[in-house]
Amino acid sequence: MNWLYLAVAVIFEITVAISAGKANGFTDLPWTISTLISGAIGTYFLSLALLTFDVGVGYAIWTSIAGVGIVIFGALFFGQCLNWKKVVGIAVIIGGVVGLRLSGAV
């Protein structure tokens, strides 16, 4: 169940980043509300996941997977550049997450 909580937290963290980007410095009220609510929900599910994950490992996995998701969503839906350097960075992040998982700390 902890992985499900972490997955939900990642989805809401991606939503936070997208909403914050659209909020125009918190001047666009609907996107601002989306940012704040998504942040609260994501943090809640992260806290549930951290009941069984080591805090540092769970947080590292959460931010890493969300970061990769944000880059991919940006490339797919917002016309942001996804060059080979970003792909290499994503591969390194995924390798780090796998390494944390294999360390038995999760």
Rank of each mutant, 00 (worst) to 15 (best):
A66C: 10
V98N: 08
A75H: 14
Q80N: 13
L36N: 06
V98Y: 12
G67E: 09
A17K: 13
A105D: 01
G21V: 12
V16I: 13
N83G: 13
G69F: 10
C81Q: 13
I11R: 13
S19N: 10
K86R: 13
V106R: 08
L100V: 09
F12E: 04
S34Y: 10
V92C: 15
I41E: 01
G58S: 06
L76Y: 03
A40I: 09
A7D: 01
V106C: 12
N2M: 14
N2V: 14
V106Q: 12
A66K: 12
N2R: 15
G25F: 11
G25W: 12
S64P: 04
V68M: 11
N2W: 15
G21H: 14
T15N: 15
F53T: 04
I14C: 09
K22N: 12
A60V: 04
Y44I: 01
I37M: 03
I33W: 10
G95L: 07
L100T: 00
I41S: 03
V98C: 07
Q80V: 09
V55G: 01
T32Y: 00
I33N: 08
T15R: 12
A23H: 02
A40F: 09
A91V: 11
F12P: 00
L36Y: 10
G99P: 05
I61C: 04
T43R: 04
S38F: 07
G99F: 04
F78C: 06
I37Q: 02
M1K: 12
G99N: 07
I94D: 00
V16D: 14
I65M: 12
V8G: 04
I93Y: 09
I14S: 06
P30M: 10
S64R: 00
L36F: 12
A23C: 13
L50F: 03
G67C: 08
L100F: 05
I94A: 11
G25H: 10
A91N: 08
D54E: 15
T35V: 06
F26L: 14
L100S: 03
G69Y: 11
I37L: 11
T63E: 05
V57Q: 01
A66F: 07
T52I: 06
V10H: 06
I18L: 15
T32E: 03
A9E: 05
S34L: 15
L51A: 12
F12H: 02
I94C: 12
L102Y: 09
T43Y: 05
I72G: 05
A7E: 01
G67T: 07
L102H: 11
A7S: 14
T15H: 11
L36D: 06
G67N: 06
I33T: 08
F77H: 09
I61A: 05
A9F: 08
A66D: 00
W62Q: 02
V71Q: 14
G74W: 07
L76Q: 06
L50C: 03
V71M: 15
S64H: 01
I41A: 02
G99L: 00
V8E: 03
V68K: 01
S64C: 13
S19P: 04
G58R: 05
T63P: 04
I94Y: 04
W84N: 13
L46Y: 06
A91M: 11
L51F: 10
V71N: 10
T35L: 05
G104A: 07
G99S: 07
T27G: 14
G89W: 08
